[in-house]
Design a protein around this nucleic acid. Structure first.
Length: 210
DNA sequence: TCATTAACACGGG
DNA sequence: CCCGTGTTAATGA
């Protein structure tokens, strides 16, 4: 665990803090499609992502999902920061996109470190900024982009976090995460294929152009 | 006009 | 056969 921690965070935290994290943090592995945080959960620790990717979803009152953004190695969930400090419940759902691992930090420590380590403070604030930016981007995408542009962004984003050009999702799953129907996804995917941006296979979409 | 819903045919595993 | 996919017609916002 120490090695993985250093590999992902040695440029972010000083030696002393890394030492303390490895001593106190709880190492956890997860599998793709694991539910890591459910809406309404109380958050009692903060995750540092070591490997893999996690998607952050919002749910509307009808129970339909909407993908907000992905977390990658070196990220933390800004939602847990607000939840921990404010001691409120989670407004989002976190689902593992790939297999991976993370370290859980108890909230008492995270407050303690805020005063003791400059690098920790910077990390927390940076995470906030990055997440806020991502959130704005998600809003822009929803408000100003057409469905076909959203779909293409969804595919390229996904390819980026997975680190490959092949995406193993059915049209139905994509439709669900984008909050629309499969017919539309099928039609738009077909259009993207005709434009030479992607190649369609069964249970598998290949990105040709970014 | 464009998304959604339902229905159906095709075909690969 | 089952399921993912491609398409169409009807309906609604």
């Amino acid at each position: 665990m120490k090695e993985e921690l250093i590999q992902s965070y040695s440029f972010v935290f000083e030696e002393e803090l890394l030492e303390e994290i490895s001593k106190i943090g709880i190492y956890k592995e997860f599998k793709a499609d694991d539910y890591l945080i459910e809406i309404g959960d109380y958050i009692k620790s903060m995750p540092l992502l070591l490997n893999g990717a996690i998607k952050i979803l919002r749910e509307d009152d009808k129970g339909d999902e909407l993908l907000l953004y992905f977390l990658e190695k070196g990220d933390t969930c800004a939602m847990t920061l607000t939840c921990c400090l404010g001691k409120s419940r989670s407004n989002i759902r976190a689902v593992a996109e790939t297999d991976g691992s993370l370290i859980m930090i108890p909230i008492e420590k995270m407050e303690d470190w805020l005063t003791r380590y400059k690098s920790w403070r910077n990390f927390v604030f940076d995470s906030y900024n990055i997440r806020l930016k991502e959130m704005l981007e998600a809003i822009d995408t929803l408000a100003f982009m057409n469905l076909d542009e959203r779909l293409y962004k969804y595919l390229t984003d996904k390819a980026k976090v997975l680190g490959k050009t092949q995406i193993n999702n059915t049209h139905q799953e994509i439709a669900y995460e984008m909050h629309t129907s499969r017919v539309v996804i099928s039609r738009l995917l077909k259009a993207l294929e005709l434009n030479g941006k992607i190649k369609l296979h069964r249970n598998n979409i290949e990105i040709l152009e970014f």
